[in-house]
Design a protein around this nucleic acid. Sequence first.
RNA 1: UCCCCUGUAGCUCAGCUGGUAGAGCGGGUGACUGUUAAUCACUAGGUCGGCAGUUCAAGUCUGUCCGGGGGAGCCA
Length: 461
Amino acid sequence: MRPSIKEILLMNPDTDTRTVYGWVRTKRDSKNVCFFELSDGSCLKNLQVIVDKEKYNPDDILAKLTTGAGVEVDGLLVESPGANQSVELQASEIRILGEAPAESYPLQKKRHSFEFLRDIAHLRPRTNALGAVTRVRSTASFAVHRFFQDRGFYYIHTPIISASDCEGAGEMFQVTTMDLNNIPKTGGSVDYTHDFFGKSAALTVSGQLEAEIYALSHSNVYTFGPTFRAENSNTARHLAEFWMIEPEMAFCSLDGNMDTAEDFIKYVIGYILEHCAEDMELFNKFIEKGIVDSLASVVNSEFHRVTYTDAMKELEKNKAKFEFEPSWGVDLQSEHEKYLTEQVFKGPVIVTDYPKDIKAFYMKMNDDGKTVRAMDVLVPRLGEIIGGSQREDSLEKLTARINDMGLEEKDYWWYLDLRRYGSVPHSGFGLGFERLIQYMTGMQNIRDVIPFPRTVHNAEF
RNA sequence: UCCCCUGUAGCUCAGCUGGUAGAGCGGGUGACUGUUAAUCACUAGGUCGGCAGUUCAAGUCUGUCCGGGGGAGCCA
């Protein structure tokens, strides 16, 4: 394979002519010499190409070397007298592969707002910041798999289309092949026996319940895939389609769950700091000043752990500061999460043992009968990045919870079977991949850390 | 879904209590000792988000619809 620009920039000067491919990022032209920079997406830095017009002066080609043009350049890699690079390419021949007329090409050699770039999502990966996000996201994906694979977790492909009626983690996108202009009905309601699956189906909102199936056969498993929520939420932290990581571990209590969550976050951050140092420097300089040091200290310090009850006591000491009054039984508001992570603990915090009434039916009941073995990992700037729990493994207690919450026992028949046969303590959590990327890069809007964001009223590209 | 802000040149914005549009960057043209967001000179770009209304007169005021941003809720 031909070397990438990333590799070429690390090379020593050549003695033979080589051919380099890339897109023009910027050009600086003067009477005797023309400089332009090439990017092929392999790294943040560009390869500087120099045209010595006394030796080679293709006027018509230089005119077409505009920002965005795709080119092929023959030349000699030489030591660069300039300050910003150790080598540069002395061009002997340039071929334009694809022009990018400057009058109409939307990207200019200047900074653009992320709002503007969202409207041209097909071109934005060519910019420095979105290019860096792309590399960090890819590297982080690899780190996710590596963390779990190194620890013997099996990667489970849970279904994208879910016909089970029991996920209950938010509004779902319905999936149907029925003609919406002519829906078969019995009485007043839709007759799903005529639909593709013979019953109603939807895009998954979580792979957790299916992951539990495999945790109870393979001990340690994880999922990492797309997840869909049809919530009408309009914030910088929510997407209708996002990627979620959900480990599920058998013979594991809430403490083990917290340990895994903490190790996981630290591992991925450490991996990115090591392998994406150049890109992280861009975020450190232009997106979130000081983020590299702050992430490094996260890797090197313990996450604080506090029960919901103790966190509430802490918040109640400072009631006056909040718009929403903190009181036991009420879920933590955004302002409370911010206060805990940014003022009280100054770093990631794991809050545990929430009141049962504000958490899901499957979480294990504590002996007090009031709280459940839940944990949320909260981080500065973002709030909740992980939600998890030890799962209820007692058939009686789980059945009682299902009934208490007005759910249908029969919808959960296979989930209850897991407690009927060989039930063991097990735990797991869900982590929004995009939120992790936001946390690591400092990018303020979640729409800028996923290539093609899907949000309410927006599915362009 | 609720609250607040916002929509003016390709981009980022200015435009006062109403009197028919400006800057920087980008583009084009030219100049220029190897430049690094190069520099310098000249130059062309606008149905002021859509529709309706008030007024002699609307970028400016009002209503409404549609974008965009921030916050809240829901959560990951």
